[in-house]
Structure formats: structure tokens, C-alpha cells
Amino acid sequence: MDKSNLELFKQALSEGVSNRFDKMAAECTEEIVCSDKHNLAMKTIIYGKAATKRRLSPKAKRLIAILVAAALLLTSCGIIFRNEIRQIFEEFFVLLSYDSDEDDIIEDVYELGYLPDGYSLKDEKIRPVRIQYEFQNENGDYIWFEQKLLDGTDLYVDSENGYTKINIIKNYEVYYRYTDGRYVYVWNDGKHSMNLTSSVQISTDEIVLILNGLKIK
């Protein structure tokens, strides 16, 4: 077999295959908009689970859990039940307990379309199973919005736990509780549990505006 003919054929093969695919791509004139699921799947294939989920190894999880448990034992009950520190630990355990083998993540990420006057976004945390926004005004008053997956272990919003049903707003049954100096409103949309926590009382009209202004990001 003539080697130069073979090399020439390889060159023709490379050119022919490349041209064919160029033609195939050119035949598609519409703009391709891939679904969010596809983009997430591609991100995971390209970057791996660790990059997207910040997963810790089981050994590291156990070690951190032991250290945290020891720290809790040494801390007085009054400090443990301070709301700020409790929230830090709660957030930490949410990250530890998240099993990235599970299929469920928050797909519809909500955001507030309406805010009372003077409030602006101070912080946001978008995680696979928890969304949190913190808004504040110049007086230091704050409003927190949190969204989690509804999994049956959420707050039991009944009168035994101090909740009062206040209204049905935008098809949500909204419950209210005043606790630890905060005004807490909770509801769910069938897939997610959501709550709004404020350091100052918000009028019912404002609550209605906030809930009506909820939209998917």
C-alpha cells in the first residue's frame, strides 16, 4: 500500500468528517437555549460533585461533628440558645447533613419582588436546600426571608407551638408567631416551606404586598 496515498486519505477523512459536522451545525439556525437541568448536569460532569456541592468526606464530617459537639458541651445553655449563634450552627449542620446523593434540591428559587420602604439587600445565601436573604434599613431593623424544601420535618405551625393563622394570601395559608423579640410569618407552596422574620412588626398590608410580590428568580 502506497504510504502517501494512505496519508492523503487520512487527511481527506479528517477534512470530510469535519466538513460534515460544520454543515450539520450550520443547518441549525435557531438559537439553542439549554434547560437549567442540562446546565447543572454539564457543570457536574465538567467540574465534579465536589466543585458544585462542596462535599466533605465522611471522616471529615465525623471529626467536625465531634469537635462541634465538644464545643457545645463546654458552652453555657444561655449562649447556645442565643439566636445568632444557634443560626450559625443550624446553617453549619445543614451543610454537613446535605447528602449530595439525594435528588432533591431547590429548583424554584424565590426572591422578594416587594420590600417595605428603606430596606435593601444586605446578604444572600443560595444553597441547594436552603435560600436565605437578609434585608436591612438604616435604623438597623431587619427582615429575613428563608426558603427550604418541604420535607415534613419543618415547623409544626399550630396553636400548640404558638402559631396563629392570620390569613390566606395568594393561596398561601400564612401563620404568625411572636417569639424572642421577632415577628415570624410562615407558609408553604406545597414544595417549599418559607418564612419571613422581622425585628419590627410589619403591617398586614405590607405582608400582603410582600407575599404577592414573591417571584421565582
Binding site: 500500500m1 494512505l6 486519505f9 481527506a12 477523512l13 470530510g16
Partner: peptide, 18 residues
């Protein structure tokens, strides 16, 4: 490869592969 006669008709071969 010999039957292709690629030296004489390279462009035709490329088009046939396409």
C-alpha cells in the same frame, strides 16, 4: 486505498466522505 485514486481526485473523495 488504491482504488480510491485519491491523488487524482482528492476533492471528490472529501465530498464523498462528507
Amino acid at each position: 486505498i488504491e482504488e480510491l485514486e485519491i491523488k487524482e481526485r482528492y476533492d471528490e473523495v472529501v465530498k464523498a466522505i462528507e
